[in-house]
Design a protein around this nucleic acid. Structure first.
Lengths: 234, 234
DNA sequence: AAGAGTCAGCTGCTCTAACCAACTGAGCTA
DNA sequence: TAGCTCAGTTGGTTAGAGCAGCTGACTCTT
């Protein structure tokens, strides 16, 4: 009776090993054989538990080398979020739009607290990114990486690792789904100008202007999304 | 050479089954035995793949009954986020504060678009929640569920399922970690009054006032968190 | 002696085969 | 008719064997 759920206990116990041992990311975990003995379960159960923990980014498994404490990044969340959005999209929901709305709300909320507090180094980096995007826009579509880097650099000054990763996760999931399922890419020139305006507003310390700028930016993406909607391509 | 990663392929193929089949949440998946044959792999591999998908909330496994398409909620994200925050906390990082900052940014960003657009039904529900919290505050600590319900009901009107779930996930992870690791619970009376003020501002359609109110609310929690910080309890 | 190739040993990965445990539903019993 | 029992299905767990990738020390060549 006391051992009602033998299975998921193993996951918890492995988590405990990490927590109680104050193990940092990258620290080696016991081998499968050691875990078998340590936890008193079969190898198979150990592996299933590790597989689940791996899916959550809590452990990292390297074939022929060993098992390690994972980076605990938001990477697994991207997987789940992407799948969820794709599945929802195919079922005719506006899941991609919802994801965009989530990004917009978050970035808007961050921007107001960011204005006037961006380190000079980041401003310089943002300048460079806007210029790079301008150059790319001349010659056709903008590299996705450039857009991602802009959004990432913008909020770097908040010095919040979790925040950066969550933002990036949302960006990534959105980008993946959009490129896979829709072909409504916004006009590169317009996007570039909007980035420039956001940066200018932030540098000027004008909260309202910055908020308007970022809403414009997302509004642009949203419009393109709506017009290019083709929920169930076969 | 063509089958470099035999393992993770299985996960992808099962995902495909769901996507291509347009399977809605709750739809039954093939049994383990059927998947063995269908994918041409051993039962063990099938189970490991399912275990990973389960950890991501993509499938739901019911002992003795079958395997089903999962709800794809943000529940697994809560797990990962909670663990990450706890681990970071024990290592002396301000992970809990970062999580709070994330919530604050998101709720702030949402609030500005919410003001004046909350359905009457939700306003009534929020009224009731504030009153319930007031009654509870009289007799001591407020039930966590009441606070959660308030934050959930506030953004219900945006009609964005993803948004609601992400907010709830963040709330949940934060709450779990705080109750486990810190004992800096804010004054119930103050919290209640702040909820009342947020609601009043939203009802009045005053964006600035609402923004200030929600910042006050989070500022209060943050202060309590900082003062009660005890990063590494043994 | 220095470098490159090899191989033994770790590690995780996959498979097979058997049995245990939870749930369902048809059939039996009262 | 109401409730129980039991057989069948499904997932859960264990065991043992062999495969596959990586590392590092050993050996052979230069």
């Amino acid at each position: 009776m006391h051992s009602r759920k033998v299975a998921s206990d193993i996951q918890e116990r492995i988590k405990r090993l990490i927590i109680d041992g104050r193990l940092p990311s990258g620290a080696p975990l016991p081998t499968e054989a050691e875990l078998m003995e340590l936890l008193g379960v079969s190898r198979n159960s150990v592996r299933e538990a590790l597989k689940a923990l791996q899916a959550m980014g809590i452990v990292e498994i390297r074939h022929g080398f060993g098992t390690y404490v994972g980076a605990m990044s938001m990477a697994p969340m991207i997987e789940g979020l992407t799948f969820r959005t794709v599945a929802g999209h195919y079922r005719g929901e506006d899941s991609l739009l919802q994801l965009l709305e989530l990004r917009e709300a978050l970035e808007t909320g961050l921007l107001t607290r960011l204005v006037g507090r961006v380190p000079d180094a980041d401003l310089a980096a943002l300048d460079a990114l806007v210029e790079r995007m301008a150059a790319e826009a001349e010659r056709g579509p903008v590299r996705a990486e450039t857009d991602r880097a802009f959004h990432a650099a913008l909020y770097r000054g908040l010095d919040n690792q979790l925040l950066s990763e969550v933002l990036e996760a949302f960006w990534d999931a959105f980008h993946r789904v959009r490129t896979d399922l829709v072909d409504g890419t916004p006009d590169p020139q317009v996007t570039c100008e909007q980035h420039r305006e956001i940066l200018a507003a932030v540098r000027a310390g004008d909260t309202l202007r910055a908020e308007a700028a970022i809403r414009d930016h997302f509004g642009n993406i949203r419009t393109r999304l709506r017009s290019a909607a083709r929920p169930a391509p076969d």
